[in-house]
Amino acid sequence: MAMLKLNQLTAGQEATVSYVMGDGPVSQRLLEMGMVPGASVKVTQLSPWGGPMMVNLDGYSLSLRSTEADLITLLS
């Protein structure tokens, strides 16, 4: 089964976080900011050509790049 990642969603789509991969500083910051299993996340704005995306994470706005969203696995 292919895993669904946050950077595969399009604007307006919602999902539930499964887990964050890796144990580097970026993963740590994502976890601290609330990207934990069970958190609900909705893509609110996408910018083309590799620009950052804006998501609503449990009620607040967070920006992250596609490479960072690639660390976040979703429940499908």
């Binding site: 500083p25 970026v26 910051r29 994502l30 900011m33 950052p52 804006m54 607040y60 706005s61 967070l62 920006s63 992250l64 790049r65 490479t67 960072e68």
Partner: peptide, 9 residues
């Protein structure tokens, strides 16, 4: 560098 940033209301 990464760009994980809060956008305040």
């Amino acid at each position: 560098p990464p760009f994980v940033m809060e956008l305040p209301s």
